[in-house]
Design a protein around this nucleic acid. Structure first.
Lengths: 218, 218
DNA sequence: GCATGACGTGAATCAATGTTCACGAGGATA
DNA sequence: TATCCTCGTGAACATTGATTCACGTCATGC
């Protein structure tokens, strides 16, 4: 046996954890199964992490980092609201294709209750909440977006749909739900999804008699 | 002791189950705790239900009935799209206030994976999916709603926001998320929520140059 | 009032699973 | 090469929790 777990093995361990926690929830996940999936012993797992809870947190942290990376990429360069929206939609659709496990974990976590969940909501959503709200308010000030809306509330709607679309790409229930409404799987038709979602957003955010002239065509 | 559990006790048992399953997920819930919460013995619970799974299904069934009842009430009398939307928003906000446990259970269930979840998605969402899609298509045909959208896809967006708003009223994570975006709790400001959501929907669904004249003002 | 049966009770059982620890393999050092 | 030390291993342990069942209680029939 190797002296230490290789970086790759530790990687695999976290991935295995993400997948198991996502699949069975933080209560239902099985530590033995996680270790097995990662190809190491339970003992080793406990050498590196302080119990199930600690390990769960580590898995979560890993997912968060990935999410933040994607978000940073999207907001790197300035753009108008519509362009932002397009980028965000694309980035998140890709994210949910490439990191399905993270999204599933996120979904499971959001469904769990308690103090813990509340604290995490603050950490995870706080960033995007401020970001989206700011963009929308800026759009309003610049005359691109309608003024008769509450930026925070509309940002909430904006983000809610993005969440749902991501869940639809990764989580069994939400995927089936998407199929019922739209036919097919979201990950198989990102273009269609992007087009319709953007259309929906554009109208919702830009309606105002005075602004009709501004509106780009889809 | 009474000879048989009273109807009221059986009622309490289901309620206790809904609450526990909602709180800890179907894996994390504790049968002893459920029995205790309902004020009966575990033994009795097992006399009435066939194991944890069977009992879980019973709790789910109860929630579903309540949801269907609300939905039926909303769609009882014909109306235009906007009026429907308003009714649905109100009904679901009320539902999430009065039956928080059911919504929480639903949220937990949706996060769980597997065959089971898929089957349930079909049962639960199928009805509303067809309903919303039909209404939207009808609105398009009648000229009230924009024609450059896919009814199914927009119905999906429509329902997605309603789900999120309900979750925000019942589930810790989603509630906190709402607070971050909008400030305050959804259940404390149903009017504000209704107003903004309706505004959002109206623009999203009715934008089309030709239709501007049709649009009612909010 | 007594016998009988139906039914709830909750302690006991048994399986699942989080966690620990005595062990041994392999690498490092001299 | 001999010794030591680090670190992974997985069987053993302890706990938790689903499920069962021997028992007691209450209603019913006679």
């Amino acid at each position: 046996m190797l002296k230490k777990l290789s970086a790759e093995q530790l990687e695999r361990l976290l991935e295995a954890g993400v997948e198991e926690f996502a699949l069975h929830g933080s209560a239902g996940a099985n530590m033995r199964a996680i270790a097995e999936r990662a190809g190491i012993s339970v003992g080793a797992l406990y050498k590196y992490y302080d119990g199930k809870d600690g390990f769960f947190r580590a898995c979560l942290g890993r997912s968060l980092e990935a999410l933040e990376a994607v978000l940073a990429e999207v907001t790197a360069e300035e753009a108008g609201f519509k362009e932002y929206a397009r980028r965000i939609i694309r980035a998140l659709l890709r994210f949910s294709r490439e990191h399905a496990g993270y999204v599933r974990l996120y979904c499971t976590l959001a469904a769990s209750g308690g103090e813990e969940a509340v604290k995490l909501a603050g950490e995870i959503e706080g960033i995007t909440a401020r970001l989206y709200t700011r963009y929308i308010a800026a759009g309003q000030a610049g005359g691109d977006l309608r003024r008769d809306m509450e930026p925070g509330m509309f940002a909430f709607f904006f983000d809610s749909l993005l969440m749902m679309v991501q869940f639809a790409g990764c989580c069994d229930y939400y995927r089936e739900r998407f199929r019922l409404y739209c036919g097919g799987n979201p990950e198989d038709q990102p273009d269609r999804l992007e087009r319709e979602l953007l259309k929906f957003y554009e109208s919702a955010f830009t309606f105002e008699e005075a602004d009709v002239s501004h509106r780009e065509t889809v």
